[in-house]
Design a protein around this nucleic acid. Structure first.
Lengths: 349, 349
DNA sequence: CTGAAAGCGCTAACAG
DNA sequence: CTGTTAGCGCTTTCAG
């Protein structure tokens, strides 16, 4: 008595396994089997089903799958910012990696100021649509992470550098590369080196700052708190901080910015106050965003292994999904100091 | 005999209306009504339901809603590129607008080279999860648009400037503003003006080019095909084109680039070949990406009404969704010429 | 005001 | 190799 099968695929009504079954003259279950490739279906039957499915433009309804707790082959990604070139690169890389292994990616931009609430977009993402979640929140509130962990959905954190998250993390190395960057400046003779910090939420900037402090201490250079300033990861932040330079009594001869955008801000500010880079001021950024290699002089910076991070993130997530096991490994991929024209010998000896 | 109700919300099993119903001692239907606010529920009952829902951290299962063809309050957005600052701005703006009216946004990055296939991510987006679709494909293959149209899902195209799409479109003005930009150069005395085109897929660059041609013709300046080059909307494209300048027999005194990224590429290339901007070369871009106002000299450009476009796009889409009517209006929002330091008087008279 | 029934599209599990 | 049954979580419809 299955007479409530939708009539015919007409215009805006999507085809279902029932339609195809009716066309081919088999049961919906056979269609399902033929389409999924699981179980036994006669070759002839299968090809007829496949042809019919193609003809009606059949698209399986994810939601029905979700309800059956079946795999959706969709993974969700959560970010708080997309206008940052580096984050955009990470998202693009993840998107490519996902596609490579046949997974679709739904990206969600959640409000960084979500006052103690789990964003509803994230709730949606957790409600079964996705097989797993990739979280790249530069400002991850612990509360959100808690909620995700409790939900039990396979999750991997990207570029999150903080203790006790008890979730799998894949990130680029911050400390070692940042230390190398500062040592590069020290080797060039710089002693007055400023650090422009980003936001502290993801733990990345603090690690870079720790490396900065350690490198100076190891070189017997006293830490001057006046040289550690806040740039909030924005170009405007770097710009504003650099504009203050000429007024300083003993101005730094080099600046290490916690990301490239702030460094580019410094670069423009330097020009506007008449400081030549690298002659008057050496400059290092972090991330190696595309612009870093086009500006003049080229920006010395630290390149994170973005594609490798994305790939490892996806793979780690897929492993959790496939094995139905939540893991908590921490994968750290090395970053690399890229020396370009923005750093030079300190001439103020 | 509903004894197959899941026992208790335990850890990773999401709470359902049944759980809440069991806790409160009512039927699932009453819970549904209380939660949705539709239909009549005694005040006391409602508040008990709400309390219980809050307590167990209830999140409605979208997929179940989808299956019932109910509204999901999720809208999907499709883009082919996220690393372009302007597109990132558009996506961010759309995301904000969506949140403002209580809708969640799922963003999907689809492959621009999707060889004649409708990307599976898009299929998923169309399979009921979303109430509507916002499409901002700078390289929209008509095939994809066709598939979307056939599916009957409410859709709005963003910044798509091509005829016969038969879908609603919201976009920034290209022709008028581009013409104003070229006229600005003409007024400064420039006659040798080059145009660096972007890709032609979205129809935006061709419109800007048409404005360029018309402006020159109206000013009795002959069109020199050698001055119309292809930059593919990339910074590298603009950079490469500009590097060729010094070798030209009668090099242009001004360049109009179809977007800011190419213009910034030109800027860096100009520096590297020893051309001063605006002294030796005037430069105009398009989009007014954040960097445009930070570089030195500031980049003269055309600002698209990004937030207004996003807002109008969302509103147009919501109207379609709310009224269950597919519309095909074309909304064009004015763009604005922003004059900064990269354009100056032509000195080669 | 509340409940019961049914079914959205799909697929495990079981039965032929 | 194929079909039947049942049920995922929700809401529309109809009945109290």
């Amino acid at each position: 008595m299955q007479d409530h099968i939708p009539k015919v695929k007409s215009g805006s009504v999507a085809a279902t396994v029932h339609h195809i079954a009716a066309v081919v003259g088999v049961s919906p279950m056979t269609v399902s089997r033929a389409l999924s490739g699981k179980g036994f279906v006669a070759k002839a039957t299968r090809s007829r089903v496949l042809t019919a499915a193609e003809a009606v433009g059949y698209v399986p309804n994810i939601s029905a799958k979700v309800l059956k707790r079946a795999r959706t082959n969709v993974i969700g990604m959560v970010v708080t910012e997309l206008r940052s070139p580096h984050i955009a690169q990470v998202v693009a890389a993840v998107s490519f990696s996902a596609r490579d292994i046949g997974q679709d990616l739904f990206i969600c931009l959640v409000d960084e100021h979500s006052s103690g609430q789990v964003p509803s977009a994230l709730k949606h993402l957790m409600s079964g649509i996705c097989d797993g979640l990739l979280i790249a929140l530069p400002k991850s509130p612990e509360l959100v992470l808690e909620a995700v962990k409790r939900s039990g959905i396979p999750t991997v954190l990207l570029n999150y550098e903080k203790g006790n998250s008890k979730m799998a993390v894949v990130r680029g190395d911050n400390y070692r590369a940042a230390r190398e960057a500062v040592e590069h400046l020290l080797n060039l003779g710089h002693r007055r080196i400023a650090f422009i910090a980003g936001s502290s939420f993801s733990g990345q900037s603090p690690e870079r700052e720790r490396a900065y402090v350690d490198a100076l201490v190891a070189a017997d250079v006293a830490i001057d708190p006046a040289l550690i300033v806040q740039g909030e990861f924005h170009q405007t932040g770097g710009f504003a901080r650099a504009l203050e330079l000429p007024a300083m009594s003993d101005r730094p001869t080099a600046i290490f910015a916690a990301n490239d955008e702030m460094a580019l801000g410094v670069m423009d500010a330097a020009k506007s106050v008449g400081l030549q880079i690298p002659t008057d001021l050496s400059l290092i950024g972090f991330d190696d965003i595309p612009t870093a290699s086009y500006v003049l002089p080229g920006l010395t910076t630290v390149r994170q292994a973005t594609y490798e991070i994305a790939d490892a993130g996806i793979r780690t997530l897929m492993r959790q999904i496939d094995t139905k096991t939540i893991t908590t490994e921490q994968i750290v991929l090395p970053s690399q100091l890229i020396i370009r024209g923005s750093t030079g010998l300190c001439k103020q000896d």
